[in-house]
Design a protein around this nucleic acid. Structure first.
Lengths: 132, 132
DNA sequence: CTAAATGCAAATCATTTGCAAAGAG
DNA sequence: CTCTTTGCAAATGATTTGCATTTAG
């Protein structure tokens, strides 16, 4: 059983067959799929409705089992706790992970200054390789 | 004539009445309106179709006159050159601008450390209001 | 004048919702 | 057993598109 299933128990989210399926898809995902993509991947393994996928995703996002961003005109999802800070190499398109410990503090302070408590943040950096 | 009109000339974007209207709305905006909001504001001044607003926004985003982000399930727009770092109030959905000077340096250094020159970045912070 | 832009309405995606049947605890 | 969740299908909201008409350059 995956990490996310355990997290569901903890948050009091009932574990059903369709939910396990969605959770499994998101545990295996290395990208940020939208509801439709999640449904397609899940449907390869068992019968599940797109409407149900939407309801599940809403529930899991509300309870903090997943995080959700608006991207490319759609809502996209990932397992909670994954790092989502990237540097995109504009020459090659390669994506490099950035360690967020460098920023967490300064961002927290900035939020504080505006009267907010930092809940989460997402940073996308574009850069080009130095040197030849 | 606003700054954006000049930018259109430069990029070879034909200046029509509806386009000037959309540009004016976005020059005056202090928030990040979606197509529908832009249409409502524009329609107060002259007759214009929502469909046309969408087409104009696409053209202006493609040519770099405006920048577009996906937010709150909708596409939202702002004049090019404005900083696009936001704090999203997770209670109300309100979007607050963050001054990026706080981060530019530390992000530049992080990129440097990974062997890259910083070209651009985008920061999205989610926070909840402090206080009782 | 000519290619590009607009209005209008219908089409296409993304997401939500009402209701009856199935399932978890 | 009871309350929640699912399936199905229809509804809503965001965005795009085809076609005849107007307009900027």
């Amino acid at each position: 059983m995956g990490q996310l299933d355990a997290l569901c128990q903890l948050r009091g989210v009932k574990l059903t067959r369709p939910r396990r399926l969605v959770l499994a898809v998101l545990e295996e995902a290395t990208d940020h799929p939208c509801a439709n993509e999640i449904h397609q991947r899940a449907a390869l393994r068992a019968r599940i409705t797109l409407g149900t996928v939407y309801r599940i995703l809403n529930r899991l996002a509300e309870t903090g089992v997943l995080t959700r961003h608006s991207f490319d005109g759609k809502m996209r999802y990932e397992a909670a706790g994954r790092r989502h800070h990237h540097l995109v190499d504009i020459r090659s398109g390669r994506i490099v992970e950035i360690d967020d410990r460098d920023f967490a503090t300064v961002i927290e302070q900035a939020a504080e200054r505006l009267g907010y408590r930092l809940v989460d943040f997402r940073l996308e950096v574009r850069g080009e390789p130095k040197g030849p």
